[in-house]
Design a protein around this nucleic acid. Structure first.
Lengths: 249, 249
DNA sequence: CCCTCTCGGTGTTCTAGAACACCGTCGAGC
DNA sequence: GCTCGACGGTGTTCTAGAACACCGAGAGGG
């Protein structure tokens, strides 16, 4: 009747519902293989429409937390096993090991509202505030990479005081808040440098560069920090060593 | 008013719509970066409700074919494919699993003298001859990567006969010569596409791209093949999952 | 000149209801 | 005893409309 859109300023209703169900699954109230209540029943009990509830289920299915089967029901999916075998080396940027002189210059640190990609990655609703930390990494006083980190406001409040020009962010997180990063997901693409990035890095606009976007998660699986890094292509390379096991048949 | 569900026995309406839009993108009626019509307008022109149209867009967004931006519009995404760097070599296999149509076009195969970098990597003296194999990888008939492989003449003599448009090089090496690649070293950098690469890949000259250079070694540790691959940055991303073990050691 | 605020356009979330489509089961008929 | 068809339960697709939320641009104030 009212088509209210959103009454309160928080997360969309279907996100909230998804979170609630996620919690039930994580806590074991809903065990793998168990069948959820009927969609209609769930909708009623959450006080929303069937369509809205289905949006929530959509999210969960995309995360492989549930599986819906036409005519049968909705089931908690078996936890997918992460068979990540190879321990990937770190970026070859571990230059400090090579005796290079690496420094960090803090460019900016302020609160702001993130763009959609960042907000999504951090699981924040639109309008949430984050702490943005912009840093320039220099090798032998030559700009090497431009890094923007985004932290949820609650975490950012505590981090603001740390001396991020000297202390690695991960270390600050651990010491100040006891947060340990246990997992991260990283995406690297090849892009052209924009005006601002080029200026900070001292490159011509449009120079080829790596852009890395990384989400780090704490031990509980909650997103902690989003990093966006630009590295000019002429100053950096990714190297890796591959080992092909057992050449199976 | 009818809430028809499905009148005909075919695909759901929103799937049909998604297909129609997919076709427009593939055929170039909608070019990357272009803005689609308003959701409301599209809904009207397809004769469906906003909600139904949005379901179609949902599909396309999940496929990374479009990107929707609140307050701005819906845009055709630059073709881009997530890929796990760990499995770079199993290129075709993974994509076809996603339902993409992957083909290889053999551009050239001839003997020539390699440049210094290649010769060094293969442990050859100056003036040695190598077999050069240039291949274009296409995903859904759209150029995806340009790959040049260099093999020492002795190996190349046997490989010339293989149908490299259909047979993976590694497979040909194993079947024809019993050579099994056991290890490889790869370097990835961000570069600007040169004239020739851009032409083959159908990109503007100077477009940002990944360049991967890889040396593969056989079980005895002898270099077997050198690969140089160009992948436009708007069609490819490296993704990886990192796991930080509990500060072991 | 710069900052702010409003405004129109665009995507987003939600409602209330209806008609399907798919699945397993159970009973009638052979 | 076995097969097939109806049935109830469950997920799926769709409608028509409404109220938001977000963004960029342009107008107005400092």
């Amino acid at each position: 009747m009212n088509g209210n859109g959103r009454v309160n300023g928080r997360l969309p209703r279907y996100h909230q519902i998804a979170q609630a169900l996620r919690a039930r699954i994580r806590e074991g109230t809903l065990r793998p293989g168990a069948r959820l209540e009927t969609q209609r029943r769930l909708a009623t009990s959450f006080g929303v429409t069937l369509m809205t509830l289905r949006q929530a289920l959509e999210l969960l299915e995309r995360e492989h937390l549930i599986s819906r089967r036409h005519g049968l029901g909705t089931f908690v999916a078996a936890p997918s096993i992460d068979y990540d075998i190879l321990q990937l080396r770190r970026f070859a940027g571990d230059l400090s090991a090579k005796g290079e002189h690496v420094t960090t210059r803090l460019l900016a640190m302020r609160f702001s509202t993130p763009d959609r990609l960042v907000a999504d990655a951090l699981g924040l609703g639109p309008g949430a505030r984050v702490l943005v930390v912009a840093r320039l990494r220099l090798v032998d006083d030559h700009p090497m990479s431009l890094q923007c980190s985004f932290l949820p406001a609650l975490i950012g409040d505590e981090i603001v005081r740390a001396d991020l020009a000297r202390t690695p962010l991960h270390q600050a997180l651990e010491r100040t808040l006891g947060i340990v990063v246990g997992r991260a997901h990283e995406t690297v693409s090849a892009v052209r440098l924009g005006r601002r990035e080029a200026r900070e890095l001292g490159c011509p606009v449009g120079a080829p560069a790596f852009e890395s976007e990384r989400v780090s998660f704490d031990a509980a699986g909650a997103p902690v920090v989003f990093d966006r890094v630009f590295i000019p292509g002429d100053r950096f390379r990714i190297t890796r060593e591959l080992h092909y096991e057992g050449a199976a048949s």
